[in-house]
Design a binder for these strands. Structure first.
Lengths: 114, 114
DNA sequence: TATTATATATAGATGATCGATATATCGTCA
DNA sequence: TGACGATATATCGATCATCTATATATAATA
């Protein structure tokens, strides 16, 4: 299944933060991990991710550090800040409200909450 | 609940088409109906809707006609074309794939489809 | 009579994502 | 050995969807 990219808009940040909730990750790893967990529905592009990571770091949502153990290649790991955890929780709630609303509209004529 | 508008991106067309699946409607009515059915989550702006309707008509997804019965004010009604119905079905499938994938990522660590 | 709701329309701004491109290293295969 | 694909990060400009602001016109309401 190939998803129209415009659907992704708005949920990308939440998904990235969710990945970091479980464990610290570096950019390239996020792309692969997101692809794996979504079963190839999400193929986040590097040109989308790296600028987004920089923005989130500036906004104090995530923070980066260089790989501590020696790796084959230089990697920048990211972790959630306390504010980032809070933001993730908010975005989950927002997602649930949004997807419920879509399903409500799709569900039928929807008169009076039925 | 106030939704980040960027979440809307990509699903607006599907929601409009869904409204028209049940009955023909004019633009202003769609805005109100969408608001009602989504319980105020979606507040589609006129500046978004009218250009979108024109585009969808050009693409033969919907077609318009003037109100047949006399109305207080001139109204342009829209109906789904055959192609529009097909497109709606496709977009529903796409939405399900997308929202399932998001929920899969949100659901947990997600190793091996668990 | 002024304001709000109804009804449609368009122009320009904003913001998220992508494609293209760049750099550098590593592993593999011919 | 040399080319290529995978790994890893980065930036620029393009694209596309939505919004804000603005415009027009009439009906209802205060």
């Amino acid at each position: 299944m190939k998803i129209d990219k415009s659907l992704m808009t708005g949920s990308t940040t939440m998904l990235i933060l969710k990945l970091l909730e479980n464990s610290d990750m570096y950019g390239y790893q996020m792309i692969e991990e997101l692809e794996r967990r979504s079963q190839n529905i999400f193929t986040l592009k590097a040109g989308t991710l790296y600028p987004l990571l920089h923005t989130l770091e500036q906004q104090n949502v995530i923070e980066s550090y260089d790989a501590e153990v020696e790796t084959v290649r230089p990697r920048k790991y990211y972790r959630l800040t306390k504010y980032g955890k809070k933001l993730l929780d908010e975005k989950k709630i927002e997602w649930n409200a949004y997807s419920s609303a879509v399903n409500r509209v799709l569900g039928g004529v929807g008169y009076d909450g039925i």
